[in-house]
Design a protein around this nucleic acid. Sequence first.
DNA 1: AACATACTCAACCGCCCTGTA
DNA 2: GTACAGGGCGGTTGAGTATGT
Length: 372
Amino acid sequence: MGRSPCCDESGLKKGPWTPEEDQKLVHHIQKHGHGSWRALPKLAGLNRCGKSCRLRWTNYLRPDIKRGKFSQEEEQTILHLHSILGNKWSAIATHLPGRTDNEIKNFWNTHLKKKLIQMGFDPMTHQPRTDLVSTLPYLIALASMMDTSSSIDEHALSLQAEAIQMAKLQYLHYLLQSSSSNSNLALDQQNNPINITNMEPPFSLLNVKENINTNNNNNNNGPSSFPHHHHHGNGILIDDDSSCQPLHYHPNLLLSHFLDPPSQQVSFNSQSCLNNINEQGQGSTTNYAIISQMDHTTADDNSSWILPSSSPLSSIAPNNNGPSTTTSNNNNPGDTSSTTSSYGGGGGPASSSSSYWSELFLVDPTIMHELP
DNA sequence: AACATACTCAACCGCCCTGTA
DNA sequence: GTACAGGGCGGTTGAGTATGT
């Protein structure tokens, strides 16, 4: 058909809009509506093409536009919707009132995409990058072979740390995927069943909101064998060994371990995850995740989901495999839950499917120790 | 202070879809 | 059925800004 572009007429202005142009456009639309975009510039006294006017209005001048940084909730929503819809920015934008497709697209390209890549996920599929998975055995071997006590080569050290980090990330994501695929039943905050089987992996990962229970932060320390962990109801309690900062409580997410302190209001921040892992890669911190059975949410646990204890997460919990221990230290006020899962005991189908990972990590206690 | 590099985001480009004559 | 106008969408660009050296 060979239609000529609408903006190739000579003499039409391009580039940044001036305040005067903005004012003309806003005034005209407020008075007459935009009507035909092509006809609008002449009617409004603008030396622009209609397309440029439409873009300026929809992306910048519209009165209902929300400006400023994206909230963590918005970030979660974008990640979740992108995992389902892909680069359908306009479709994603319909779920984020006040945000334009252009803004979301920019935010994705400049922030979220990089985060996923840094974490070893394919930003398009939201799956672990297969190239990383395929090199995992090599990375593990590399990490194992390098003896930090005898080597003074910094490059080797960084390689080792990197190998451990990548392996851990892959393993964590594997756990999350397994958790989703093996746990058909989860509950939302109203205890309504949520079928997470058909959800994309990031969904289960991203929609579990943190529950920061400040009531339990200071008095819920576990046994000494696992210092700085806590029990919150029947869920996972994770603490930062070095800081004893307020906890993030993610009943079904080991990854929650890596989240930022709640003061930063981060519910999923891959960069912070990476930073935290980086720290651990250097062996500077000792973090633990205690996973116990859980069967319901507590009164104050109003944003958490619950997974059955058959979750593969429990198969690596110290309860099952580790040197300890902590099965119930339930200091959560108002929590009357039992430590026995309503959905059945631990183990389950996930055990076999995780054998690959188990072999990879259990064969080397050092690496396993690095895991949260 | 000067320069280089990285980052952000408004704006543009070109293709596609839909409605209409 | 075809041609075209109009609008929408996703990808990309580049100027401005921030940060690092």
